[in-house]
Amino acid sequence: MSDVQQEVTNLIYREATLLDRREWDDWIDLYTEDAVYWVPSWANEEETTNDPELQLNLIYLRNRGGLEDRVFRIESRDSYASVPLDRTVHLVSNVLVQKEDGDDIEATANCIVHTYGKKGGLTRGSLYDFNLRRINGELKITRKKITFIDDRLEGPIDVYHL
């Protein structure tokens, strides 16, 4: 495995681990200030929406503050949907470096998230598209697109379910 492949894989694994272990601040630190976090909605049975500005998304956060909003709400313990918090296990696989251009890297991965909560166990899948940038020798996420393949959604969907 090349160094870059290993480095990218470690970052994506680390994100999954931080989410499952509720280490929110360290999770947010993986993202740059101007990072985009995008979960499109489904435009039809076969295609998601593809213009995040002018079409409906499930989540579309245009900077790290959007992730901070989510964590603020979870940590407030005042969100009905987030108390009690669902348990999650992320299994990330198929990590591939798609493109390297200086300090910028594009990578894809697949993720299965097993959730346990009021509705019992739910297992759902996503495709991940990452844009990463090496900053001061460290890889950071500048953009993450999550194609959540489930359509008729059961229960709340928050950043730790994805």
């Binding site: 499109p40 489904w42 213009d51 409906l56 059961e154």
Partner: peptide, 10 residues
């Protein structure tokens, strides 16, 4: 607007 979301509610 293009896009929608469907959710099951118990």
């Amino acid at each position: 607007v293009p896009g929608s979301s469907t959710y099951k509610t118990d």
